[in-house]
Amino acid sequence: MSLDKATVAKIAHLARIKVPEADQDHLAQELSAILAFVAQLDEVDTEGVAPMTSVVEHALRWRDDVIDDGGNVERVVSNAPEQVAGFYVVPKVVE
């Protein structure tokens, strides 16, 4: 499986990572090499095999419905690059 420049551009946008056009060819080659490496899995017969969902064999634990968190705006926004009056601030989004 090899991956072309256009696909690199597409997945880079899906992943929200700017990849300058000049780097796309090189990256396509690197990613193709990795995909060629993982393509070995095609050899494995997985007919009827259930995909692993977790290596831990126990039931999902549930929390009780109690309020024991929140109520601390400072904690939530103190690391933010931009904040106003307790809101996070981002460039304007048009819906």
């Binding site: 109690v66 309020i67 968190d69 929140g70 109520g71 705006v73 307790g86």
Partner: peptide, 23 residues
Amino acid sequence: SQAKLFSGAATVFGSEPNSQVSL
């Protein structure tokens, strides 16, 4: 419910921004 689906922050509305937010 009192708390959120995966955290212990409250679900009631109309509060100060980001005051019902767990990390």
